[in-house]
Amino acid sequence: MPAIVVDHIHKSYGDVIALNDLSFTVEDGELFGLIGPDGAGKSTLFRILTTLLLADSGTAYVVGHHVVEAYKAIRKKVGYMPGRFSLYQDLSVEENLSFFATIFGTTIRENYDLVKDIYVQLEPFKTRPAGKLSGGMKQKLALCCALIHKPEVLFLDEPTTGVDAVSRVEFWDMLKKLKQKGIAILVSTPYMDEATRCDRIALIQKGKILSLDSPDEMVANFGKPLYAVKTPQIYQALMVLRNAGFTHSALPFGECIHLTTNLSLNASEIRDYMEQKGIAVEEVQPIDASVEDIFLNLSQTAESQRQ
């Protein structure tokens, strides 16, 4: 059985649907990313899979155990890092780690090889209270604590939120190493650029999976020509492009507009069209899609279907 099986999970809070008929599997030793904005239902899914929350309907299995019937067995075999820093702030780095090791009936020494790479970075601060660590250090400590009992599956809920760019890269490197040790990892992130570091990703929004594939496949299957349009008049340009017959979608993207078209056009045709409409265009060039393009396109399509 795969490490994680999610089968038609549904959960709502009153009128708000948090998870809408969600299904996917995560294999052993796979790094699986849940990519979606805040409020997409990522944390709710984590809490169901870590046996903290009961789903309204549907079933889920973690390391072969049913999340409701065999929750005790699951708790021994998974490591969970909640979205909010959840270690004891007044305990020191070392105390936190040995506390969680003790709760799981193990010792730091027994599983030291698993956490060694991460813990060496924390070692200089081991007597410092966990609450006084920097954001990146906190997350590294939390990862250590989630790993100390040698879990078979790791649940990381937005581990890189609020962490600086350098620490984020380091963090993903660590996940890669852990994956190589055969640990299945389910990780969520609101940062689309981190998606490429996963084996497979699921783009989710409003409790529904928009797309599920490996990041490369997803990009390759984008299917529509994509152009980056650079212009000083972003707002006017957007209005013009959205009314043009060839446009599939036009979305602001930093200082550019990312334009997908239904027809295959070349860059100069687009430039000419815009200049005719009185928009100053600095540059138009075809580009490869990023996960963010895919997500925005899919979510826009999903949105218009709903309307």
């Binding site: 870590t50 046996t51 903290l52 005790k72 708790r75 021994k76 998974v78 969970y80 909640p82 909010r84 820093f85 959840s86 270690l87 004891y88 702030q89 969680f100 709760i103 799981f104 009936g105 604590c145």
Partner: peptide, 13 residues
């Protein structure tokens, strides 16, 4: 309130 209970609850304690 601090969220530490979340971490404790997933342990076999």
């Amino acid at each position: 309130e601090l969220g530490t209970i979340e971490q404790i609850n997933v342990t076999p304690i």
